[in-house]
Measured scan of single mutants.
Amino acid sequence: SRSVIRSIIKSSKLNIDHKDYLLDLLNDVKGSKDLKEFHKMLTAILA
């Protein structure tokens, strides 16, 4: 869910600018399909 993804971003080791950017992107995501794609992208970034 959106709140879980937000929590993953906030607890990541990324610097604050990257976190803010990803949180802004997350706010722009519409629909469950796009949310799944965003989660895939985030997982790849944090891997």
Rank of each mutant, 00 (worst) to 15 (best):
R6A: 13
G31H: 09
R6D: 05
S11P: 00
S32H: 12
S1A: 15
R6P: 01
K30R: 11
K19L: 04
K33L: 10
N15W: 07
L23R: 03
F38I: 03
S1L: 15
V29P: 03
N15V: 07
N27V: 07
D34R: 09
H18L: 15
A47G: 12
D20H: 13
H39Q: 10
S3T: 09
R2V: 13
F38R: 00
L14V: 05
K40Q: 09
K33W: 04
D24A: 15
K10E: 14
L26H: 00
D24L: 13
L35F: 06
K33Y: 06
I16A: 15
K13P: 10
V4Y: 05
S12P: 02
T43H: 08
A44G: 12
I8Q: 06
L14R: 02
A47P: 04
I5S: 02
K30I: 09
I45S: 03
S32W: 11
L46D: 01
D17H: 11
I16H: 13
D34W: 08
S3F: 04
N27P: 02
S11E: 15
S12M: 04
N15D: 12
K40G: 06
F38H: 02
Y21Q: 06
D34E: 14
L46C: 04
D20F: 04
L42M: 05
I8D: 03
I16C: 09
R2Q: 06
H39C: 10
I45V: 08
Y21C: 07
L46A: 02
D34I: 05
A44Y: 06
L35T: 02
D24C: 12
D28N: 15
K36N: 08
I5L: 07
I45E: 04
L14G: 03
K40I: 13
L25M: 13
K30T: 09
L42F: 03
I9T: 01
S12K: 01
S32R: 10
S3M: 12
K36A: 14
I8E: 05
F38C: 02
H18N: 06
D17V: 09
K13T: 15
D24W: 08
D20K: 15
S7M: 07
N27M: 11
L35R: 02
N27E: 08
S11Q: 10
K36V: 12
N27F: 06
S7N: 15
R2W: 06
L42P: 15
I16N: 13
K36T: 08
L46G: 01
K10D: 08
L23C: 06
V29G: 02
T43G: 07
S12V: 03
K10S: 09
S32V: 11
T43W: 08
I45H: 04
M41E: 06
T43D: 12
E37L: 08
K33S: 09
R2D: 06
Y21S: 06
N15R: 06
V4G: 07
R2M: 11
K40M: 10
L25T: 04
K30W: 07
A47D: 09
K36D: 13
D20P: 00
I5D: 01
R2F: 10
N15H: 14
S3K: 08
K40D: 12
A44I: 11
L42G: 00
K10L: 11
S3A: 11
I5A: 05
D28W: 06
L46W: 02
R6Q: 13
S1R: 11
S11W: 04
K40F: 05
R6Y: 03
H39T: 11
I5F: 02
K30P: 04
N27W: 04
N15C: 11
N27R: 11
L42I: 13
T43P: 02
I8P: 00
I9D: 01
S7C: 08
L26Y: 01
K10G: 06
S1H: 12
A47I: 10
D20E: 15
A44F: 06
V4K: 10
R6F: 02
M41F: 12
I9Q: 00
K19A: 05
S32N: 10
S12H: 02
I8Y: 03
S7W: 06
I16S: 15
L14A: 03
L14T: 03
K19T: 03
L46Q: 02
S32D: 14
N15L: 08
I45C: 04
E37I: 11
I8T: 05
M41T: 06
L35W: 05
H39P: 01
N15P: 12
A47W: 03
S1V: 13
I5V: 05
D24G: 14
D28T: 13
L25A: 06
N15M: 06
S32A: 15
L35M: 09
I8H: 03
N15E: 13
S1Q: 09
I16T: 15
L23M: 07
K30A: 07
H18P: 02
D34P: 08
F38D: 00
R2C: 04
S11R: 11
L46P: 00
H39V: 15
M41L: 07
S12E: 02
L26D: 00
M41N: 05
M41W: 14
I16Y: 10
K13A: 13
K13G: 13
R2T: 09
D20I: 12
D28C: 10
K19Q: 13
K33H: 12
K33E: 15
K33V: 12
L25P: 00
G31C: 07
D28Y: 12
E37D: 08
H39M: 14
M41H: 05
S12D: 03
K10N: 13
S7F: 05
G31Q: 06
K33R: 13
K13Y: 08
F38L: 04
S1F: 14
L35K: 02
L25W: 07
E37S: 09
L14Q: 02
G31F: 06
A44W: 05
A47H: 09
S12G: 04
A44P: 04
V4N: 08
K36L: 14
S11V: 05
M41Q: 07
T43L: 14
L46T: 03
D20Q: 14
K40W: 05
G31M: 06
Y21E: 08
L35H: 02
L35D: 02
I8W: 03
I45T: 04
K40Y: 05
S32Q: 10
R6H: 06
L23F: 05
D24V: 11
R6V: 15
F38P: 00
K10P: 00
D17S: 10
D20G: 15
D34A: 15
L23Y: 08
S11N: 15
T43Y: 07
L14M: 05
S32E: 15
L22G: 00
I9G: 01
L22H: 00
F38N: 00
M41A: 06
D24E: 13
K13C: 09
D20V: 11
I45L: 12
K10H: 08
D24P: 00
T43S: 10
L35Q: 02
A47K: 11
I45D: 02
K13L: 07
H18R: 05
S32I: 15
G31K: 06
D17Y: 09
K13S: 15
M41D: 04
I16F: 07
I16P: 15
H39A: 11
I16M: 12
N27Q: 10
L14I: 06
L42A: 02
K36Q: 11
K30V: 13
D24Y: 09
R2Y: 06
S1M: 13
Y21L: 11
S1T: 11
L14K: 01
V29C: 12
L25N: 02
K13Q: 11
D17E: 14
S3W: 04
A44D: 09
Y21R: 09
D28M: 13
D17M: 11
L23Q: 04
K19C: 04
V29Y: 05
I8G: 01
D28V: 08
E37N: 12
V29K: 04
D24R: 13
K30H: 13
S7V: 08
S32M: 12
Y21V: 07
K13N: 15
S7H: 13
K19V: 07
S7D: 13
A44C: 06
H18V: 15
S1P: 12
V4T: 10
K40T: 09
R2G: 05
A44K: 15
L14N: 02
I9L: 02
A44E: 10
S11C: 05
K10R: 15
R2S: 06
L46N: 01
I45R: 01
L22Y: 04
D24I: 12
K19P: 01
T43V: 10
T43M: 14
D20Y: 11
S3D: 15
S11K: 13
L42K: 00
L22W: 04
S7A: 14
I45Q: 04
I5W: 01
I16W: 09
S3H: 11
V4R: 11
K13W: 11
H39Y: 14
K10F: 04
S7E: 14
K13D: 12
M41S: 04
L22A: 02
S3E: 12
I9C: 02
V29I: 13
D34F: 08
A47E: 11
Y21W: 09
S12L: 04
D17T: 10
I9S: 00
L26M: 03
R6M: 09
D24K: 15
K30S: 10
H18D: 12
R2I: 14
G31R: 07
S32G: 08
R6I: 10
E37G: 07
L46H: 01
L26E: 01
L25H: 03
E37P: 02
I45W: 06
M41V: 05
K33P: 06
D28L: 15
D17W: 09
D28S: 15
K30Y: 07
S12F: 04
L26G: 00
Y21K: 08
L23E: 04
L26V: 03
N27K: 15
I8K: 04
H18C: 15
E37W: 13
N27G: 10
E37M: 09
L25S: 03
R2K: 12
D34K: 11
K30N: 08
V29N: 03
Y21M: 14
E37A: 12
D28K: 15
H39K: 09
L35C: 04
F38S: 00
I45N: 02
D20W: 13
L14H: 02
F38W: 03
H18G: 06
T43N: 12
L35G: 01
S7T: 10
S11D: 14
